[in-house]
Amino acid sequence: MAGTSLEVAIAAGGTAGHINPALALAEELSSRGHHVRFFGQSSKLEGTLVPQAGFELESIRVTGFDRARPWTLVSALVRERAASARVGRAFAERGAPDVAVGFGAYVELALMDRCRKQRIPYVLHEQNSVPGLANKTLAAGARFVCVSLPQARPAFRGRVRREDAIVLTGNPVRRSVLGASREAGRAALSIPGDATMLLVFGGSLGAQHVNEAIARLKGRLLANPGLRVVHSTGKELYDGVASSLALTEAERERWQVVPYISNMGEALAAADLVVSRAGASSIAEIAALTVPSVLVPYPLATGDHQTTNAHYLVDAGAAVLFADDSIDGEAFADDLLALVGDAERRERMRACARGLGQDRAAAKLADVVERAAAR
């Protein structure tokens, strides 16, 4: 909507996997001249990340319910109604939005309920291949349901007003990640420009089995003299991994072990190959920065959704997939070592990732939000 400034309300919270895509959309919308404010819980992660990014957060209080304890639904509904009333007061005091966007999780229910009552259009965005309950519940009233992965489409069929209300946008990635460069990333990590860099990470909590499998391959990996490894273990797992690797001073020059990577954009931009779990945010960032990857989905993820997530890259030719129970075998070791040594194969995988256009996801989602407001 060129020339028209919109008021956009966004609900996202609980985990970085919900909040960061929402912030990526907010950055894009702001760059187009729209005003964005968030609704969420100041006591949760959004209470830190949203103000840090320079956006307003209207604080509401909600709780989810435990399916194993159905009676908790009563208190959850009471708080959701109170939160909806709080959103209504915010609308009355500061003006109602032209359109709202929900990024899943129960924190969006109050905002979307208020929008439904006041006939304000709303859009939903689903990051995972297996949609959550909140988005499935709210889909019937949404102008559009945007999905990150094509595998999520079937879960919304029959729940939306029209088939064309389901739009594949990809999962938005923040500009700080998209703007990272190989040169800056390598400078930050002290990686020579002509080295091959392998990045290993399992999310903020780490992935113990992946850590163990990579540690066992230390000798074979370091036998490649041009290889540098950056290994993010997860904060709780760091001491155990460092002990099992038992790196010598010379080996530490080539194998960096860290508990957590604060600037994942720089690390991914610097990398030639990634070994990772397959969470929605990891998949989005790997695809956006077109890094060849070896994906090991977390086997206990709800509905095995990480395996489905991984197929977004695997089916495009941008990644290879190994089940968690297979990474102790020779096939995993052989393929990883072969990829480390095969620059041409990695470049073909990078080209396949580039073809997905994941770096344009925030813009595609912003286009849909503008369309929803215009109808």
Results as ranks from 00 to 15, higher is better:
Gly13Trp: 04
Ala16Glu: 00
Ile19Arg: 02
Pro21Trp: 03
Pro21Tyr: 02
Leu23Pro: 00
Ala26Asp: 03
Ser30Lys: 15
Gly33Gln: 03
Gly40Gln: 01
Gly54His: 08
Val62Gly: 10
Thr63Met: 12
Gly64Met: 10
Phe65His: 03
Arg69Val: 07
Leu73Glu: 11
Gly88Tyr: 01
Ala90Asn: 04
Ala90Cys: 10
Ala90Gln: 05
Phe91Pro: 05
Val99Tyr: 14
Ala100Leu: 08
Val107Ile: 13
Leu109Ser: 13
Gln118Cys: 01
Pro121Met: 03
Leu124Asp: 06
Leu124Ala: 11
Gln127Thr: 02
Asn128Trp: 04
Asn135Lys: 07
Lys136Glu: 14
Ala142Ser: 10
Arg143Ala: 09
Leu149His: 14
Arg153Tyr: 01
Pro154Val: 11
Ala155Thr: 06
Asp164His: 04
Thr169Leu: 08
Val173Arg: 01
Gly179Arg: 12
Ser181Lys: 03
Arg182Met: 09
Glu183His: 01
Ala187Cys: 04
Ala188Ser: 13
Ser190Ile: 06
Met197Leu: 15
Met197Asn: 11
Ser204Leu: 03
Gln208Met: 06
Gln208Ile: 00
Val210Pro: 03
Val210Ser: 03
Ala213Arg: 01
Leu222Ser: 08
Leu222Thr: 02
Val229Gln: 08
Glu236Trp: 08
Gly240Gln: 08
Ser243Cys: 10
Ala246His: 09
Arg252Ile: 01
Gln256Thr: 13
Gln256Asn: 09
Ile261Ser: 10
Leu268Gly: 12
Ala270Pro: 01
Leu273Asp: 04
Val274His: 09
Ala280His: 01
Ile283Gln: 12
Ala287Met: 09
Val296Arg: 07
Pro297Phe: 02
Pro299Lys: 15
Ala301Gly: 13
Asp304Asn: 15
Asp315Ile: 05
Leu321Thr: 10
Leu321Arg: 15
Ala323Cys: 01
Ile327Cys: 06
Gly329Lys: 11
Asp334Gln: 13
Asp335Gln: 12
Leu337Gly: 08
Leu339Thr: 03
Glu347Leu: 13
Glu347Gly: 07
Arg350Ala: 12
Cys352Glu: 14
Asp359Val: 14
Asp367Ile: 04
Glu370Phe: 10
Arg371Cys: 12
Ala373Asn: 04
Ala374His: 10
